[in-house]
């Protein structure tokens, strides 16, 4: 979508803001930002430093620059933990989860906000409340369900006889496809969306699905960006569910691959850090890609692109 009016207006705002904002203020903010970023990244810098340190020198010095830098840990990470394959598995699961979460819970949240129906509030709270139960409690029932999915993995129509979705990518993605918190998030986001748009479109005879997909979804780019980032991160970070649901090396996700270096009492620090740094990169790319949706801000057109 392009909106020449919006662009015009924004440039007007920009020039006005420039007049209002003393340079001193900007420098102050830049300094604050750089300091915040450095402080937040400090532990991460140490991870990177350790990733380049030979294992036997790990934690030997406080210096951020390794004395004898090596790439050996990255080799170990890729070969021993079979990291490429784990990245591939996690990426597939995460992408499916991102697509599903950007549609299903967003649509529901939209409806809860804009198209309430009798009992919708209760239903909304009921769905979201499931997030307040610790995974420890729901892990085993979910595992039993993954095993009992009908017609999957040799199961009959009643879910008996086979292994269901155990040890498959489908099984890994099972709990992530619709995150209840995303319904909540979408509802909050759409609660400030202008209702008049829908009313106007209805008068024009547009169907409800079209109104959502053509009118509101394009307005919700920051929401979609957040949902995408969170859905991706959630899959990427989870350990317990993939641990339980998979049993072969072929199905390992990235966190399971990292666990290779986390033997109790015998942690391999340097390869662990190397693998962790590698594993961080894809999420970072997903974030970088999606954060471009946060463009409007104070001075840019809110409907650019």
């Amino acid at each position: 979508m392009t909106a020449p009016t919006a662009t015009l207006r924004s440039s007007a705002v920009r020039s006005k803001r420039r007049g209002m904002n003393p340079r001193r203020n900007r420098v102050g903010m830049a300094v604050a930002l750089v300091l915040a970023a450095l402080a937040v990244l400090l532990p991460f810098f140490w991870m990177i430093s350790l990733a380049f340190t030979p294992e036997k020198d790990a934690f030997r010095s406080v210096s951020l620059v390794p004395a004898n830098p090596t790439l050996e840990n990255f080799g170990t990470a890729f070969i021993d933990a079979n990291l490429l394959h784990a990245l591939y598995n996690s990426a597939i699961v995460a992408l499916v989860a991102v697509i599903a979460n950007c549609i299903i819970p967003v649509l529901a949240g939209y409806a809860f906000a804009m198209m309430p129906f009798p009992g919708s509030t209760a239903m909304f709270f009921g769905l979201v409340a499931t997030s307040a139960i610790p995974v420890s409690v729901t892990l085993i029932p979910l595992f039993l369900m993954a095993k009992g999915i009908p017609l999957a993995g040799g199961n009959d129509i009643f879910g008996h006889g086979g292994s269901g979705l155990l040890d498959t990518l489908g099984g890994i993605m099972l709990p992530y496809l619709v995150a209840p918190m995303n319904i909540f998030l979408a509802r909050q986001y759409f609660s400030t969306a202008p209702a008049e748009l829908a009313e106007a479109a209805r008068i024009d005879g547009a169907g409800e699905l079209r109104i959502f997909f053509r009118v509101y979804l394009p307005l919700a780019r920051p929401l979609i960006a957040v949902v995408a980032i969170f859905a991706f991160t959630a899959v990427w970070d989870d350990f317990l569910w993939p641990l339980v649901v998979t049993s072969s090396t072929e199905m390992q996700t990235v966190q399971l691959a990292l666990a290779r270096f986390l033997a109790s009492g015998n942690v391999q620090y340097a390869p662990l850090m190397a693998a962790s740094v590698i594993v961080t990169i894809p999420v970072l790319l997903v974030f970088l890609f999606n954060q471009r949706s946060f463009i409007s801000g104070l001075s840019d057109g809110s409907v650019k692109g």
């Binding site: 991870m47 991160t233 990427w236 970070d237 990292l258 850090m273 962790s276 961080t280 999420v283």
Partner: peptide, 9 residues
């Protein structure tokens, strides 16, 4: 970044 780095690491 802190949100995405592996917690155990």
């Amino acid at each position: 970044i802190p949100h995405i780095v592996s917690l155990t690491a």
